[in-house]
Amino acid sequence: MVVAVAEDSRGTEQARQWIEQAKTAYWCLIDADHCVADLYGMVNVPQAVWIDEAGRVVRPAETAGSTDHFRRMDLATRTMAPEDQAARLAARTAYLGAVKDWVLTGRHALATDDARRKQPRITTEIAQAHAHFRLGTWLRAHGKPEEADRHLAEASRLHPDSWNMWRQAADLDAVGKAGGPEFWARVKALGDRPYYPPPDLPGFGR
């Protein structure tokens, strides 16, 4: 079963067009508070968690098929080199193949110790950031944008690795800002660090 969660503080109406176009048979849920990111320690989208029949996490939060090839995109034309497009598609196909393989055979499920080791480590700052983020999105939805933005900014300061928090706050400020010049400056500032850390799965070059 697929459960696709929209981390969208603008709520249902913002997510509707994508969900309706996808015409899915699985659950498409709206998570305006980003509670799933909080519960599972996610920092970006798309990230996925694999859960077995007993309700146990067998692969903690990790990048779900996306790659960093977009970082080499020509920003004027918004296009990627053909080889980057091909590599990107190959990674997505490999990831989807691994998911199907797990569903059919159980392969790629991590042993208990490995799954535990790969769980994100939540710091006091991260826990505090989630509280600020929750208050910020609530204040945004209740007509207090200036006060909201203080809390959203504090959330990103406390948890700078969370692209979800930074991009959601940018989007609440203005649609499109999450992918604007400030976003690209932040991506560039990563330097050698990945935007989408590759999962530890076959075909991901680790």
Binding site: V3, V5, A48
Partner: peptide
């Protein structure tokens, strides 16, 4: 989308691929 609540644990007995996305 219709406001109908869904609870993850109702899917016990099946494998779940829990994934996230966003419009932004």
């Amino acid at each position: 989308l219709d406001g109908v609540p869904h609870t993850l644990s109702a899917l016990r007995g099946r494998k779940v691929f829990l994934t996230t996305w966003a419009s932004w």
